[in-house]
């Protein structure tokens, strides 16, 4: 049996990715996570005098805290198995990536384990966030200098 024949058998038997189901679950749970976040924005605006432009920070921090707790208790992982991108894409997923790696590194000590491993998975998000911000701002600056666009 050659590789191509095998590929056929394997594809026939391997259950297909449930695209529609996965997308639906990601939409509902991801939407729900954002709605909970939105409730916090109201909470911080009404009770802590935040404005609509400044409320993003405490909201994100609160969501990160909740995700950290659920990660530590081993619950986030179970929700994520159902939600997929619905829990990976919100900032809670970033928290889960950082916190799970941090907890995992504990047996190697706080410097070599927790410290060095914390950004094992979330590090690429920071790299590409910062690098793309740099280039986008640079391009904008060039375009403004050339008079193509305005600030």
């Amino acid at each position: 049996m050659d590789q191509q024949q095998y590929q056929q058998i394997e594809d026939q038997i391997t259950p297909p990715t449930p695209y529609v189901k996965n997308v639906l679950k990601a939409f509902l749970i991801g939407g729900l996570v954002c709605t909970i976040g939105h409730a916090f924005t109201y909470f911080y605006i009404i009770f802590f005098n935040f404005t609509e432009t400044t409320v993003g920070n405490p909201t994100a921090a609160t969501m990160v805290f909740i995700a950290a707790l659920l990660t530590g208790l081993g619950i986030y992982r179970k929700i994520a198995q159902v939600a997929g991108a619905g829990t990976a894409v919100p900032v809670t997923g970033f928290s889960n990536a950082v916190v799970s790696a941090a907890i995992e590194g504990k047996t190697e000590g706080f410097v070599l384990g927790v410290g060095s491993n914390m950004f094992k998975m979330a590090g690429s998000v920071i790299l590409f966030g910062v690098a793309s911000a740099f280039f986008v701002a640079l391009i904008k600056l060039i375009l403004v200098t050339m008079g193509v666009v305005e600030w």
Binding site: G56, N57, P58, A60, A61, V64, F65, A68, L69, T71, G72, L73, G74, V91, F94, S95, V98, V99, S100, A101, A102, I103, E104, G105, K106, F110, V114, M118, A122, I126
Partner: peptide
Amino acid sequence: SGISAAIVFGFLAALIFKP
């Protein structure tokens, strides 16, 4: 704030939890 919060809570979680 997402990053700094994740760092702080990640550190605290590592103090408390075990996988």
